[in-house]
Design a binder for these strands. Structure first.
Lengths: 204, 204
DNA sequence: CTGCACCTCGTACATTTGTTCACTAGAACA
DNA sequence: TGTTCTAGTGAACAAATGTACGAGGTGCAG
């Protein structure tokens, strides 16, 4: 991709972010400092040929840039930083967490606020947000949210010869047996944990 | 809001989600089953007067619905679930975590992968992703990422009469004094923690 | 040198699109 | 009863917008 093409793409992105819709060809021309709309039109055609964007022919402000999705690649993950190199150097980036995409695909999922210390040994502390993906069944040994006799808890699911148990991850707590008399329901499985540094950072 | 207005708003939302840009007035007319653009125009004016959407006058396909931002409100947070009620009932939703917005505002931030057990007592375990917001200074008692003699660590920052110390959150580790001879740099402060249930869920 | 891809200009044209005006009609309300 | 809000039609207009054509320029690989 040439320098100009990248600049145009960035202009489109910025414009879209600011206004919420695509720029018109003439707006792009003005933003790029060219006076003819056909200049931009030609560049757009080239960009589309390269698969960098999509435009519905004849329809105003219908640009969809690939970068818009590319931007969605998420937040860089950095690991194994060798001594002396700057932290954000390209070589250090191990990948990206596409959190936005993850969230978009998280249909029906929700956060539960952790209440007690029963899952402490798993590093799940009070005040943490655990992301629950609703499901009806859960496999042995997995952590999930359950409703037992109306009460909602986060525990490890265990099914053995002696029946079903909800296991805490803390020696101060006892495993909870689930009997036939109990009303028991799997709410969902534990997928992710979110924790904020300080209370003031919470969004509630 | 009237029934028709809600239908129009939904149509706009669906169209935007499918195409990536707003519908034109005539497209809305067709979608709503009316034959005159002025019908839609009048409805849009009413919706705008009620603050349900924004349109840049004279500019094609420039609708910005409030619902579009509403969608961005994030993932619901559920707490204090009373016995018997369904989990996802409206009454249970305590709020939303606008993760997307958080990420959008997280310019320059990145994730570090936690390596050892030195912050175990703070519930920060190996394999966790900690979100680091770059900054040059950090206040006393806060957790941050530091580079000490080329090595990057996550510790609690402590400045006292005896100098600067990097404190672990684990009795098996010793506080690390920072002397004049050390090359020391604050990388950023610890803002958020992310953890995934299983390794297979990682994005790397 | 000769294509070839890229960038630029200016003009012109056909559509798309937002907007306005005039008129009708039902429902809610004082 | 009349008034107001909402919804709808149809026609017409002006501006915004995408597009096409012709012309010129640059730089680079063959």
């Amino acid at each position: 991709m040439t320098d100009k093409q990248e600049r145009l793409l960035n202009f489109i992105l910025d414009f879209h972010k600011e206004h919420g819709y695509s720029p018109s060809i003439r707006e792009m021309a003005q933003g790029m400092g060219v006076s003819s709309p056909s200049t931009i039109k030609a560049m757009l055609d080239r960009l589309e040929a390269k698969g960098m964007l999509t435009k519905s022919s004849g329809i105003a402000r219908s640009l969809t840039t690939v970068m818009q999705e590319d931007e969605d690649k998420g937040i860089p993950v950095i690991g194994r930083i060798v001594a002396g190199t700057p932290v954000m150097a390209e070589e250090n980036i191990e990948g990206y967490i596409p959190v936005k995409e993850f969230l978009r695909n998280s249909n029906g999922g929700f956060f539960l606020i952790v209440d007690g210390y029963s899952m402490q040994d798993k590093g799940i502390l009070p005040g943490d947000y655990v992301f629950i993906q609703p499901c009806k069944e859960i496999s042995n040994g997995q952590i999930g949210a359950f409703r037992l006799n109306g009460e909602v808890t986060l525990k490890t699911f265990k099914r053995s010869d002696e029946g079903i148990f909800l296991l805490p991850a803390n020696n101060d707590f006892e495993p909870i047996p689930v009997t036939e008399d109990d009303t028991f329901e799997v709410i969902g499985r534990y997928v992710m944990l979110l924790r904020f540094r300080e209370q003031g950072y919470h969004f509630l």
